[in-house]
Structure formats: C-alpha cells, structure tokens
Design a protein around this nucleic acid. Structure first.
Lengths: 235, 235
DNA sequence: CGTCAACTTGATTTTGCTCAACTACGGTGG
DNA sequence: CCACCGTAGTTGAGCAAAATCAAGTTGACG
C-alpha cells in the first residue's frame, strides 16, 4: 500500500526525525507519489503553492532564473529524504519563489498538501521544533552561499566545489551549464577555469570524471574566506 | 521597573505578536537592557551565542566581513521592535555567524538569554508558529538579496535601493561606505554611480539628502530582474 | 553518416576593484 | 579667529575578472 511507503519515507526524513510515527500517519495518508524524468519540472516559480515534496529517489535542483532566462542560479540540489519547497510552504506568499526540476531519470517525489503539513506541524511541538531547527540550518547555508558569491571570485568557488565533491573519491562532474548555475556564472568561464586547474596539475579530467591531485594547493586557492573568519574577535 | 518595559517591548515585537502576555512574562523577567553608542558592537562573529536581542530604540547593522576586513556586506539593518540574532539563536552552532553594530547614538537593546527563549518558544505553540513564519519571511528576503547580488549589476541595485528608500519622501543617505556594504561593493563605485544618476537628472542631491526625480527611468534601470520573472513558463 | 548538444577557445567589451591624489567639511585647540 | 587634523567624498588612471559574442571541435545517438 502506498501510504506504507509514504510513512516509512517520512519517518526517515531528517526534518521529521523527532516525530512519533502516529503523528505522521495522517500526512502519509494524504501524500501521493509521482515520478519524473530528467529535466521535467516539479513546479515553476510563480505557480500557486499546493504541495511540498520529499525526494524518494533521484535528485532535484531548485533554481532561479534571471536576465530573461539567460542566467540561472541553483539554490539547492536535494537528494533522497530531503525536502523541496519546505520553506516556501510556510510563507504567506501563495506562489513558489523558484523552479524545481528533476536531475535524474527516475526521480520519485512524495507530494504533501501544504495545509495539512502546516496544521500538523503547528499542532505537534516536536515537529515545530524540528522545523525551526531545519530553517535555521537552511539559513546558515544560504548565508554561506551569499558571502561566497559576493566575496570570492570564481576560481575560489570552483576550488571549493572540487574539494567538497571530489576530495577523496573521483567525481562525475555535472555539465558545465549546471556547474555554472551552481557557481553563479556562465558555462564558458567554468570551462576555462577547469582547463586552468588541469594545466596547473591540480586535477585530472577523464571523460567528465574529475580527480583531485593537489588538494593542498586547491585548498589554498579556495581558502581566502577562511582567513577572514579565523580572525580573533575583540571589543 | 525594568521588566515592565521589557514586557511592553516584547508584546509589541512582531515576532511575538501572537503570544499571550502571560507567556512573555518569564522572558521579560530574564531580559535586561543595555545601551550602545554609534559604532559599538553588540557582538562579533565567532563569539559564543548567549543572547538574542530586541531593538528598543536606535538601529543595528548586522554584517559579515571578508578579505581580512577589506570588504563588508550588510545583511540586515534592524530598527525598533526587530530581532537581532533571532535565527542564530536556534542553530546548534554555538557562535554568532556575523557581526552586529549600533548605528545610532543611543541604541538600546533588550538582551534575552537564548536558552530561555528556546524553551519558551518550544513550549508555546503560537510562538513556535510565529517563529516559523518569521524564519520563512527572513529566508525569502535573503533569497532576494542573493539573486540581486548575483544577477544584477551595481546600477540596478542602487536604483532599486533609491526607489525603496527615496521614492516618495526625500531620504537622508547613509555614508557611501555604509551604502557600499549594503550593495556589496566599495565606496568609490557608489560615489560614481550616484554622480552618474545625478548627471542623468534621475535624482537630486543636497547635503546627503536625495530626492528621486525620474522614478520611471530609475525603475527601468532597476527592473531587469522583473522582466525575467514575467516570462511565461512552458516546457 | 548526419545532427544536435555540449564543450572549448579566441577576441572583445564591460564592469568593478584598487591605488592615489585631491577637495570639502567639521571639529579642536591654540 | 584661525591653523590644523581627520573623516568622508570625489575623481582619474590602470588593471583584472568576468560576460559576451563568435567560431570551431568533439562526442553521443539515432
């Protein structure tokens, strides 16, 4: 039965990890699964908000457009058990503030009606607490994005990305366009910078799979942010 | 008695607007007021979080530093009844993620111990609801900052600022350094752009007071974001 | 084998940053 | 009352990063 699957997914989602299964039952009963293929949209910015989603399998990219679609910025990429549109669901605004698109070919999503979720969260203190913690974490992440985008230049952001994703194991790179959206730039520049890192012997590229050779040097390139935050405070 | 003042401030703070006064009493009793003069720090990034604050009078700027202090980015400017460090208080991280500094010469703050606030919020469903709503709004604002910083260039951001603050009544500009921190750039560029707008007849400047003359043209300059979001969706 | 999308690369332009000089204004103390 | 100083503002010159435009190249797939 589909609501069994919904329940088991919900109870393992980080956002609901403190809830008793009983409290999740009504939500699980209201949820329904859907499946998307790569590139399909879960929702688009400006559509009225009806559901929030939990990723069951695959992954979803949440992004915003600008300059008439010429540029895009990826806000999050969410994998299994993660929430999509979780924050938007609790805003008074009635429309999604961003686009969401499946990245893999089957990407299965559990849709939950926002009203039911809101009611359930507000009536279950442990859930409310979990949601508050989740939002706070989310905001911390966003602040990090914000100042890396404002303060550091592309080389630093790319180096940080590589360290994050390919430090230990080799890593299959997304397309340059996706990388560009993640880093807040355009594909050409990503191509150039990757080429530069390769020529410097910092990374090895083979059929879109990247391996870090000189992690220390990459860290140095990525690191100008760290220095700033290490400064000792004083009044 | 000081806790009367605390109570009246708390009960009128937007974040607590749904709470009964009874629920706020214990917080009011634990809070204490302090006074800062312009430039003094309420806290610095990296200090352990002990309190969150409600502005009683004056205003406070929350900002981050980078490049060893050469650049700064103002995240929020909060006036009376607004919260400072409200989100940070609910993160598990133990230190403030940004700096906070008084902008006016008496700036009075009510400090509340984070533990007490957390407990109170988690035990009072209406408060939890208010906090969730507040966090969601906050995140929406941050997303707006994010994409204006990533997608639009300085002229657009400055035009948007002017429309926001000086569209109707004349407006006393902050110093160029403060404006630069708000817009994510350096004072020189602000000076140049303001001069440019003046030469184009879009604004009038007189002793650091600005008045908008040609709102329509400013809106056009600020507006390249709007166009993007108006596009019709379709796949 | 043809086509399409992604990637690469070069040339050019724009934007913003940095450095440095210079001006205007508001005190302060002689 | 005036010389002095410090801060904020303005402006110019040079430079670096990134965006843009425009070819080419490669590779996957039908």
């Amino acid at each position: 039965m589909s609501s069994d699957r919904a329940l088991s997914l919900l109870s393992r989602a980080p956002i609901f990890q403190n809830a008793r299964e009983d409290d999740l039952l009504p939500l699980a009963a209201l949820g329904h699964f859907s499946s998307l293929s790569r590139g399909q949209h879960l929702f688009q910015a400006g559509q009225p908000i009806e559901s929030l989603y939990v990723v069951a399998s695959g992954s979803v990219r949440v992004y915003r457009l600008a300059r008439g679609g010429r540029r895009e910025l990826t806000l999050h990429v969410e994998g299994p058990r993660q929430l999509v549109a979780g924050v938007a669901a609790f805003q008074s605004r009635a429309v999604y503030p961003a686009h969401a698109q499946a990245l893999q070919t089957p990407t299965e999503m559990l849709a939950l009606p926002v009203d039911a979720v809101r009611e359930e969260v507000f009536n279950t203190p442990t859930l409310a607490q979990a949601v508050i913690g989740y939002f706070a974490r989310r905001q911390a992440e966003l602040l990090g994005r914000l100042d890396s985008l404002v303060f550091s230049e592309l080389g630093e952001r790319l180096a940080a990305y590589l360290l994050d994703h390919a430090a230990d194991a080799p890593h299959a790179l997304p397309t340059n366009s996706e990388l560009a959206a993640l880093l807040g730039t355009v594909p050409e520049i990503v191509s150039r910078k990757l080429g530069e890192f390769y020529r410097l012997g910092l990374i090895v590229l083979e059929r879109r799979t990247v391996r870090v050779c000189d992690a220390a040097e990459l860290a140095r390139l990525a690191g100008s942010l760290e220095e700033g935050t290490t400064r000792k405070a004083g009044r």
